[in-house]
Each structure stands twice: as structure tokens, then as C-alpha cells.
């Protein structure tokens, strides 16, 4: 009896299950290129997205990374800047692995760290595997309201050995700007000159996790806010590293906040292998210093070549 019961059940279910076709796909097929159905699809997607967001039915990772919010909202806001304002071109993306962990080491510039955002868009949109970049940020970012949690939602975390090790062990693509504030806040006269590379903690982390280091050079960020002076007393008042004076700021008020539309290029160089070393060798300061210097030299050379290749910062004028 039991046996016939189950077979009967299957007999009833099968035609039903066989007919299940995803609603959006079915609609697309029946519409046959009609614009109206397309609009309805998008509306349905938008409503589904809104429902997930409002109901809290999404997942964030342990660092607070919210992939959906990052892709659909945060990156969407800066994409016009990437595509149309800075017209960013990427080179050497094949040097960034599709899945495995890696450490991208880039030069930092531009007075306001817009280069971090552009690097993030480059790897997410232009890389075939759409890799989210997990940047290691200054602790100032995480003290500030709004910026702190947006940065976490966008996938970034505090630059500390624990977080760096953890991300690399998980096979994430980690990004770091070893120059820190020295790089991003340097005067316009020193553009495209790499500053000192911190204490090389990022190299030690890469050796511990046995992930390759990818030297990355960003050309174009130096010209967006040419820093020709520093309002030291105001910076001290607000506990900021600097308050820049640029040709437009603070003279033009809020209009001075507009970045100049320089032409950008981002190049990823050939990976430097760290798996030739023993993970324990991360504790050897001499090795770490040497490898740090080597990576810094690679970034600087690639930067010089890329700057020549780009030519004028504001083509076709100057």
C-alpha cells in the first residue's frame, strides 16, 4: 500500500515540477524583445531588492562586508566618476588571480583617497572574476561616524596584522596603500614620488599567508586635488592629518570639492611570489625589509612607465 501511495504522489507532482520556469526568464521569452516587459522585469527586480533590504534578508561577512549593498548602491554611486569623469583604463588585470588570495600593493595619492574607490571599481567591474577588493584602511576611518561603517560594508577593514592575515587566509583579494597619509597627503610638487613604505607589515602578512604580492600603480589621482598648501591649525583643531589648499579649495567653497577630471590609468604588475619563503620567515626583519624595498621599487618603476604612457593629465590641453 505504502509503495503505491508514494508512486501516486510522484505521478501527481511530476508534471507540476517539470513546468517550473523562472518567472523573469519566462517573461523575457514571451515578450520577444518588447521594451515594456523589460521595464517590468527591472521593476520586479527592484522590488525584490527593496524587499530584501527592508526585511534585512541579506548576509554580511564577519568583517561587515555587504556584497549586495556594495555592488548595487555604493559602487553604483562612484561608477560615473570611474567611467566618465576619470575615464579609468586598466592594464595587466590578468596578473590578478581569479579565485586565490593575493595582496595588491598600490601607490596612494590625491589628497582625498579617491584612488582607493577607483581601484575597488576597477577590480570589481573590469576583472573577469569581479573580485571584491578588501582594503586595509587607516584607523582614522573607523573612528569617524558614517565613513567607518560604510567602509566596512564596502568590504574594507582596519589595517592590523590580525585582519590582514585572516582575509588572506580566507583567499580574499586584499589591498593596501603602504604609504598611508604620507602618500595621499603629499604636496603637488612631489607627485609620483613614492613615500616610505611603512614598516612592511603587509609583506610579513603575505609571507605568513603565502599569497603573491601584486604591485599596482595608479596614475591620474595626483592631479585631482593638487595640494599646494596645508591649513595646519584647522587640521589640528579637528584632529585631521591635514586640511589641503588646492587651486580651487577653499576659494570656491563647495565647488572646490569637485575633483579635477584628470585621465587615469591603473596597472597591475607581475606578482611577486612569497611561497618561496617559509611562513616562519615572516619574523625575519631583514627579509621583510628587503622584500618591501623590492615591491616599492617595482611600483615606482611601473608608475614612471605608466605616467609616460598616459601623457597629458588633462588631454588634449595640458
Amino acid at each position: 500500500m505504502k509503495h503505491t501511495d508514494t508512486s501516486h504522489d510522484f505521478g501527481e507532482q511530476e508534471p507540476g515540477t517539470a513546468q517550473v520556469i523562472p518567472i523573469t526568464a519566462a517573461r523575457r521569452r514571451s515578450a520577444g524583445g518588447a521594451g515594456k516587459a523589460d521595464v517590468e522585469d527591472r521593476l520586479a527586480d527592484l522590488l525584490a531588492f527593496l524587499r530584501r533590504r527592508v526585511a534585512g534578508e541579506y548576509e554580511v561577512d564577519e568583517f561587515g562586508f555587504d556584497p549586495e549593498l556594495n555592488d548595487k548602491v555604493l559602487l553604483e554611486l562612484i561608477r560615473p566618476l570611474y567611467r566618465h569623469w576619470f575615464r579609468v583604463e586598466t592594464l595587466g588585470l590578468e596578473n590578478v588571480p581569479d579565485e586565490a588570495g593575493a595582496l595588491v600593493v598600490a601607490n596612494h595619492s590625491g589628497t582625498v583617497p579617491v584612488d582607493a574607490l577607483m581601484l575597488q571599481v576597477a577590480l570589481h567591474d573590469d576583472h573577469p572574476a569581479h573580485r571584491p577588493l578588501r582594503l586595509l584602511g587607516a584607523d582614522l576611518v573607523y573612528q569617524l561616524p558614517v565613513l567607518g561603517h560604510l567602509s566596512r560594508k564596502s568590504g574594507h577593514t582596519l589595517a592590523c596584522p590580525e585582519d590582514a592575515d585572516r582575509l588572506m587566509r580566507k583567499g580574499e583579494l586584499v589591498g593596501v596603500f603602504p604609504e598611508g597619509f604620507k602618500g595621499v597627503g603629499k604636496p603637488f610638487a612631489e607627485r609620483y614620488k613614492l613615500q616610505r613604505f611603512g614598516r612592511g607589515g603587509f609583506v610579513a602578512s603575505a609571507i605568513r599567508a603565502q599569497v603573491p604580492i601584486i604591485p599596482c600603480s595608479i596614475v591620474g589621482a595626483e592631479e585631482i586635488y593638487p595640494k599646494i598648501g596645508n591649513l595646519r591649525s584647522i587640521a589640528r583643531l579637528f584632529g585631521l592629518p591635514y586640511v589641503p589648499i588646492t587651486p580651487l579649495f577653499p576659494w570656491l567653497g563647495p565647488l572646490g570639492l569637485l575633483p579635477l577630471p584628470s585621465k587615469w590609468m591603473i596597472q597591475f604588475g607581475e606578482p611577486v611570489r612569497t611561497d618561496e619563503f617559509d611562513p616562519e620567515e615572516a619574523d625575519d626583519p631583514m627579509l621583510v625589509f628587503n622584500l618591501t624595498d623590492q615591491v616599492r621599487e617595482l611600483v615606482q618603476q611601473q608608475l614612471n612607465r605608466l605616467r609616460l604612457q598616459r601623457g597629458h593629465a588633462f588631454p588634449p590641453f595640458f
Binding site: 554580511v60 561577512d61 564577519e62 555587504d66
Partner: peptide
């Protein structure tokens, strides 16, 4: 396992 953001808890 996992974490939740306060905003997410509140929405739920």
C-alpha cells in the same frame, strides 16, 4: 556563525 549588523537586526 556569522554576524549581523544592528541595522539588519532592526529591519528584521
Amino acid at each position: 556563525d556569522g554576524v549581523m549588523l544592528l541595522s539588519q537586526c532592526v529591519r528584521r
